[in-house]
């Protein structure tokens, strides 16, 4: 059973749309780093707002938060475990180095 206080959904929606607009303005600045930072920063904020207020995570039991965080953390583990291999396909000549020392 939930006791739920409904926030002002319209205002949240409006904020989300404004954020979308800002992320679209990013490319006009011309700085790639800034564009990426802005776009992904805004994506995280938007996703957080949708999760917190539309999905009611803000008032949901703490357990569900842990669940979501755990799933995301697992994906971080996957990313960083795979990155050293998949992102270095040029080869580091491990075999050649070892052979040279012999």
């Amino acid at each position: 059973m939930t006791t739920l206080t409904h926030p002002k959904y319209g205002a949240i929606w409006f904020t989300l749309v404004v954020l979308l607009g800002i992320s679209l303005l990013g490319p006009l600045t011309g700085s790639t780093a800034f564009v990426l930072l802005l776009a992904f920063g805004i994506a995280v904020v938007k996703a957080g707002m949708v999760a917190a207020w539309f999905m009611h995570l803000a008032v949901e039991r703490r357990l569900i938060w842990f669940l979501m965080i755990t799933a995301l953390a697992l994906m971080a583990v996957l990313f960083f475990g795979v990155a050293p291999d998949v992102m270095r396909d040029q080869g580091q000549n491990w075999g050649a180095l070892a052979a040279g020392k012999n």
Binding site: R61, I64, L67, T70, A71, L74, F79, V82
Partner: peptide, 28 residues
């Protein structure tokens, strides 16, 4: 947490890792 909502959050969890796996691969 009512059973339906609890189960749905587990569905969301399993979906996060599905899209997470795909997007992590893309990102790499």
């Amino acid at each position: 947490i009512p059973a339906g909502r609890l189960a749905l959050w587990w569905v969301v969890t399993s979906e996060i890792v599905i899209f997470g796996g795909l997007l992590a691969s893309y990102l790499l």
